[in-house]
Design a protein around this nucleic acid. Structure first.
Lengths: 329, 329
DNA sequence: ATGAAAGCGCTAACAT
DNA sequence: ATGTTAGCGCTTTCAT
């Protein structure tokens, strides 16, 4: 069982330096005979080079990582695809780490990733915001995606959309359609929530009152949407519009509404956020605010890799959202 | 900017061996003073150890990988959670690699992972079956999950459910409910498809004919379900039951059916497979065959890690499925 | 055209 | 209680 380059070299009757050169294509000065001999042995022995050793020597791995908070939310896989496609163009592989919205796992992931395991990291932090200052002050380049950092941590790249504005637009649409008893259901914490701020701004602008009681906060998942509606409906039986922090929440909310015999959109209108691929398959098809997830991935990867390869500065990039009207409004 | 252990050692006035001991908790013989001094410096300098170097020396990384074919299918994230939870108990981190049902990416992933990047791999192969013999003959332990390998490749672990039997049961249920014009929509290739075989077996057992024309094969995604129904309906306007290779397909199929004005389950009954968390949120709630995805992840991780840690043999483990009747049948 | 040698940053056995 | 040392498997410069 052959394992190392040294073994290959011994079998081929040459030095490991020569083997290395052949395997890396730096073989302009290697005779055809030697090259073939080496390649043959490599092939036969099923040798694969130890990338750990290689990484140690070269100080890079050609791998980038995407650290995300919830792999079960279809929004993130869409970003993954964008990152993957772009990475591949540059010969980078992608690994993804799920933190399950758990700060400890987030720290762990960063610990092993930033210790030279990968050349760069794309990151969406969990909703349990905690100080990550220390963790982000590593020496691998990082680009933040989706959920922004308020305190402009230095040296981070960011690609994002204007969430607040998107929610103003979404809420306004519901208002235009005649809703007067709007509720807001989302994940995260109320006071540091862009989405909530957009909701309030729109309400205020329309001369309506936005009170905290018309709000339910949980996770960014279907259960939150479901129990959110159940709770809210108990307090406000005449809800006629709901705006959700993401599509998963909207899907859960629709189910709860339908279970209560409420018709969408006749009795209550509902709008989501993200535009995951399943939204159009709902009944009724969900109206939502489209985030260009795939493009976010592409842009993030491109920025990161340009930094890794050519030291180009990491910057802030804003992408555009789009209101998609389907049948739930 | 401090970077290496040597730097820490210099600052602390000791050797890097001492630093290493402290950082690894092998410090029974280190004086409290030295320990504290070192820890302080590590803290202040933001030092993180180079896990590449460590991995090279120790010949392990305490990382396992899950290589999966489609990160956008919610079935896999559920497995991820099982793997994660179990891995964590043993101090292993998990990275996931998406192959997008693409053989080239599959090979690439294995190439860098098996070259000592990770201590073990959990793997669901893509539907483009190709010979992976060479790739699976690496020296890192592998456990296959979900989609089985026919040719019992030696030395691989497997955790699976009896798909064929599950589809017999599902199909039979539809038959019992009175369906006589069943169609089958799935991903992959017809002749090497367990799911299809289960479908046929049930039909034959009931004295019905299973013909290839009542079948549509594509990917394991919603689009396949949608266009599958559109195509099939063109040929067989009187379809009264559809059995799907997974829930995503079923969701797409439901939409197509509903768009045609067909009522579920009155006009046509439909059954899925996997029981992804969204299925119960569909309208009507999707009846499906539950795969214990989380447990599959747990079992796979446990088997893999036991092998890594104690050399326990990789084996075959069969888990149980369960027919879940909701409102689509 | 090929090889010798140094060293990437860390660990662990073996001194002291 | 701490340090010395010898690598882990690879790449790369510099000789030859």
């Amino acid at each position: 069982m052959v394992v190392t380059m040294k073994d290959i070299a011994r079998l081929a009757g040459c030095s490991s330096a020569t083997v290395s050169k052949v395997l890396n294509g730096a073989d302009q000065h290697i005779s055809q005979a030697t090259r073939e001999r080496i390649l043959k042995i490599v092939e036969d022995s099923g040798y694969v080079r130890n990338s750990i050793a290689r990484g140690l020597k070269k100080k890079n791995t050609n791998i980038i990582a995407f650290v995300l908070p919830d792999i079960a939310n279809p929004f993130f896989p869409e970003i993954v695809k964008g990152i993957e496609d772009e990475s591949r163009r540059f010969g980078f592989a992608l690994i993804v780490c799920n933190t399950d919205n758990n700060t400890t796992m987030e720290r762990n992931a960063f610990k092993f990733l930033s210790s030279k395991m990968v050349d760069g990291i794309i990151f969406t932090h969990s909703i349990q915001s905690s100080d990550l200052e220390d963790i982000l002050t590593t020496h691998v380049p990082i680009v933040i995606v989706d959920r922004l950092f308020k305190n402009e941590t230095k040296g981070l790249g960011q690609v994002y959309i204007d969430t607040r504005e998107a929610f103003i637009e979404g809420t306004t649409k519901l208002l235009e359609k005649g809703c007067r008893n709007l509720v807001f259901i989302s994940g995260g914490v109320l006071h540091e929530n862009d989405r909530y701020q957009g909701f309030c701004t729109a309400l205020t602008k329309a001369g309506l009152d936005s009170c905290k009681e018309m709000t339910y906060m949980g996770q960014y998942d279907v259960e939150t949407g479901y129990v959110g509606i159940e709770n809210l409906l108990r307090l406000y039986p005449d809800i006629d519009g709901v705006i959700c922090g993401n599509d998963l929440i909207a899907i859960g909310a629709m189910k709860a509404l339908q279970n209560r015999g409420l018709r969408i959109p006749q009795d209550v209108k509902i709008i989501g956020f993200d535009d995951i691929y399943l939204s159009q398959y709902m009944l009724p098809a969900l109206s939502t605010i489209h985030q260009p997830a795939y493009e976010i991935g592409v842009h993030a990867a491109r920025m990161l890799i340009h930094n890794i390869l050519h030291g180009e500065a990491l910057k802030q990039e804003k992408l555009e959202y789009q209101l998609i009207m389907r049948d739930s409004v």
